[in-house]
């Protein structure tokens, strides 16, 4: 029996097309600890957002907050914060984690 294979590519050759299919990984699940911000210490300087490799800090108007869907928990934001306003807290301490 021949199972007819459905074409993945519309073209003769292999091209990717982000408009048709944008890939995305659940990198949030990689995290072993998460950044927790002490808003009182934050001066909204933005360095945490700028240095964040996955660029996943959301601008909240007066502070930045990691998008936990993508934050890999590298801890750079905590290390680079000039005011030490971010602490990396093990995921086990969060019920949703």
């Amino acid at each position: 029996m021949v199972i007819k294979h459905k074409n993945i590519f519309k073209t003769q050759s292999a091209w990717s097309n982000a408009d048709e299919k944008m890939l995305c990984l659940d990198t949030g699940s990689w995290r072993t600890s998460r950044p927790v911000l002490d808003k009182d210490k934050c001066n909204y300087c933005g360095l945490c957002a700028l240095f964040c490799p996955p660029q996943c800090m959301n601008d909240m108007g007066d502070h930045y907050e990691a998008n936990l869907d993508f934050c890999k928990g590298c801890g750079i934001c905590a290390n680079e914060c000039p005011r030490k306003a971010i602490t990396m807290v093990p995921e086990g301490e969060f019920t949703d984690g």
């Binding site: 944008m22 890939l23 990984l25 990198t27 995290r31 490799p53 996955p54 993508f70």
Partner: peptide, 14 residues
Amino acid sequence: AGGVAWCAGCPMEL
């Protein structure tokens, strides 16, 4: 994309 397969803390991702 928000989540891509680069190691945590990789400056190349940045």
